[in-house]
Design a binder for these strands. Structure first.
Lengths: 225, 225
DNA sequence: ACAAAGTACGATACGCTGTACGAAACCAAA
DNA sequence: TTTGGTTTCGTACAGCGTATCGTACTTTGT
């Protein structure tokens, strides 16, 4: 864009990351290229590399920015704390649909993600959950939350795309009456129906997790020997 | 590779798809390039495009091949049927860790995926679940299964990679005692611990889903009016 | 005030990707 | 043998991340 050289201090790490996030939110993950981001910032591509070592690092930083939006649980009331943090997690991943695809291609957990996980574990252990109970509780709960967000992202993508009207050809749809039955529910629903499912499932899981304290009690201080 | 032209009918759609799957399983998703696949097949890159319209179509076909490995539920015993199909789904996604990242970038559900979903819905509706109960049950159960597989893929990726010993620097780990406590459990465990968590969580969810028949009963034939 | 050092930005280029286009080799039927 | 269809391939192009080096600017030391 600019034929002239950009002004001296137009860039800093925050501006790079914020613009990158905006670009991914607005135009999708594919639009987030170094060249495109540079254009967005009014700068030539290579300028970016003075603030980010590589695109991989940039993506790692971006997903951690997403996790920073998630509520960090605390205190003794594990039930409502974890409910809020799970809801918050789902909302954050919904606000940035590109995040989940990025996360599961990637291996490095960022500090915000680690801090959040630590907080969840701390709340559980601080509420009388044994180590074993905490392990199971955490795996089950987070699987549900991530998975639900993932399904929503997939459904969202299947909603818009190219050819098919509802994302499925009518001929194909006719072969799957149960699915089309369910699809019409989703389409004609007055309110977004998955939100109700999420709350129902989350409560179901939190109820189940609550029973873990009895199922997997703290090991006795001096075993029966 | 071959300086000479490849023999006439060395290729067909199945060989292309099978080799692509093998390549992704063995060397990872990044290694699955048209050129690399061509080399694997002993063929020049452009030959592939006579059997696949584009790489996108190839990937769509591949994920559907994965879903074809998943057990298709049937019959009235919804509890054990859905348990088996969920376990089978988790195993299939574990066998092909590249599949999940591909799925959630993609929008087109393939025929095998549709058929499997249809079967799940059919089992539920055939076991006395109302449409509403089925909707919630399906959303909750599949969220859990997908999410669990996703977590396993992430953990698996965090296990191997580059620098860090356990995937986390010791200094960083020291700031998160709960996480490191849990990490040592996972590392020193005699058997793979997440499998137990999966079964526990799945049973928990199936128990909860079973209550949906009472919570969301079939609407009365002639309402109270 | 002036030079030296350091910092922020950019031009060019390389190797990689998917793939459009059209030519070439092969096989089948006329 | 000729024709025509099918399969394989050579070439080329646009776009990607980014290594390398150069240029402009600011800051500092004297």
């Amino acid at each position: 864009m600019p034929p002239r050289r950009a002004q001296r201090n137009t860039l800093d790490r925050d501006r790079v990351l914020t613009s990158a996030m905006l670009l991914a939110d607005r135009d999708g993950l594919d639009a987030l290229t170094i060249r495109g981001l540079a254009a967005e910032l009014g700068v030539r591509p290579m300028a970016i590399y003075h603030y980010v070592a590589s695109k991989d690092e940039l993506l790692d930083e971006l997903v951690d920015l997403v996790f920073r939006e998630v509520y960090v649980p605390c205190g003794q009331d594990w039930r409502t704390e974890l409910f809020q943090r799970s809801t918050s997690m789902r909302e954050a991943l919904g606000r940035h649909p590109w995040a989940l695809p990025v996360v599961d291609t990637r291996s490095h957990p960022g500090p915000a993600m680690l801090a959040n996980h630590e907080a969840v574990l701390d709340v559980l252990r601080g509420s009388g959950f044994s180590l074993q109970a905490t392990t199971h509780a955490y795996a089950v709960m987070d699987a549900y939350v991530y998975g639900f967000a993932l399904q929503e992202v997939m459904l969202q993508k299947a909603g818009l795309p190219d050819s098919a009207p509802k994302g499925l050809e009518d001929i194909t749809l006719a072969r799957f009456p149960r699915i089309s039955e369910l699809a019409t529910i989703y389409i004609t629903a007055p309110v977004y129906p998955l939100l109700a499912s999420f709350d129902i499932g989350l409560n179901l899981i939190l109820d189940g997790i609550g029973r873990f304290t009895d199922l997997f009690p703290e090991p006795k201080e001096t075993p029966d020997q």
